[in-house]
């Protein structure tokens, strides 16, 4: 899916050396709607944009395991526990697919993880909000995974081949993530008054962070224009956000829950739902590190990595112990 990094390293370091033939080939591929592959020449800024975006995406999958991991022992039934475990395993897998895509650009997985652990690399700010009740597991699946899927479906046609291939696989696997969340909320919405209130409360807390996942409005987005020109992005932040809102409002109506925006209403003229203003100051605050859980998420990730050191060492020791035997086997 990713691979094809073998052969001499084409990645550039330091100052950009523009290869005129390479640039012409790159621009022709973009123009033809073809894909850029790892060993093609690419502008340094394209490589850096892909590294930034894929790394942030990979880290988001890994950090995104935490809110749900916290609920595995508290899931209300064995069925829900099995579902939650499968979803968390998928997130670990999706992180790995994305780190593989990242490696084709010249950044190793270990390097990327080090940068995450040091707080240098970002992950999606939505994971810096706390998951307080069981209903949050439903709201995260429905709204957070729902928003992620809208983003990721658009990225299946992104111009960097390994990233696009990872997205196709991730989208296939993730549709159950959103469904299981919505289903959990359906159950709560048919429950007692308290369960219904818990359901509504979780939706109220996750709605705005989910909308912020699409990034700043098009006018303020520093990357959108260049990313659209390079066909990394196929639709703008605002277009994708609107698509998500239009999909989600009717789903809320089916379970008899409201969305916490008094200005949300159907606009027959545009064929879309209008929505109220999004608190971008809050988004930038959380991105900068002042969200409710930034420190906790990063500290936990570091702790898990450190506590896993013995497993990596044991794997090395096991491989070293079996290496001579394997060599004998192949010689015989």
């Amino acid at each position: 899916m990713y691979g094809a990094t073998f052969g001499e390293d084409q990645s550039q370091t330091g100052d950009e050396v523009v290869d005129a033939v390479g640039l012409e080939h790159f621009e022709a591929l973009i123009e033809q709607d073809s894909r850029i592959e790892p060993r093609d020449w690419m502008p340094l800024a394209y490589r850096q944009t892909m590294i930034r975006q894929i790394a942030q995406h990979a880290h988001s999958e890994i950090i995104g395991m935490q809110p749900e991991g916290n609920f595995v022992t508290r899931a209300p039934s064995l069925r829900r526990k099995a579902i939650l475990l499968a979803k968390i395993q998928d997130e670990a897998g999706h992180g790995q697919y994305l780190y593989s895509a990242l490696e084709t650009l010249g950044m190793s997985r270990d390097q990327a993880m080090d940068l995450l652990h040091a707080g240098t690399h970002k992950y999606s700010s939505v994971f810096n909000y706390p998951a307080l009740t069981w209903a949050d597991m439903g709201a995260i699946g429905w709204l957070v995974d729902g928003a992620a899927i809208v983003n990721q479906v658009a990225l299946c046609r992104t111009s960097y081949g390994p990233y696009a291939r990872a997205m196709v696989r991730i989208c296939k696997e993730e549709s159950f993530h959103q469904r299981q969340g919505y289903e959990a909320l359906v159950v709560l919405s048919r429950g007692t008054l308290e369960q219904r209130a818990m359901c509504q409360d979780a939706i109220n807390r996750w709605w705005w962070p989910a909308l912020m996942m699409f990034g700043p409005p098009d006018g303020q987005s520093s990357h959108t224009a260049q990313s659209m020109a390079w066909k990394i992005k196929r639709q703008t932040n605002d277009e994708l956000r609107q698509k998500f809102i239009d999909m989600t409002v009717p789903q809320a109506e089916v379970i008899g829950m409201s969305l916490p925006d008094p200005e949300l209403r159907w606009n027959a003229a545009t064929g879309h739902y209008d929505h109220g203003p999004i608190d971008w100051d809050e988004m930038y605050r959380v991105v900068r590190g002042d969200g409710p859980c930034n420190q906790q998420r990063l500290a936990h990730r570091n702790q898990c990595h450190d506590e896993g050191q013995w497993v990596r060492e044991a794997a090395n020791a096991y491989a070293a112990k079996h290496a001579p035997r394997a060599a004998e086997g192949s010689a015989a």
Binding site: T13, L105, M107, D110, D114, L115, A118, G119, L298, N302
Partner: peptide
């Protein structure tokens, strides 16, 4: 490699190093 140095004064986390 194109990465940043890994230094982060803001978080107080250990900086990434070149040590494998």
């Amino acid at each position: 490699m194109t990465s940043a140095s890994g230094e982060s004064a803001a978080t107080g986390q250990p900086a990434a190093t070149d040590q494998p």
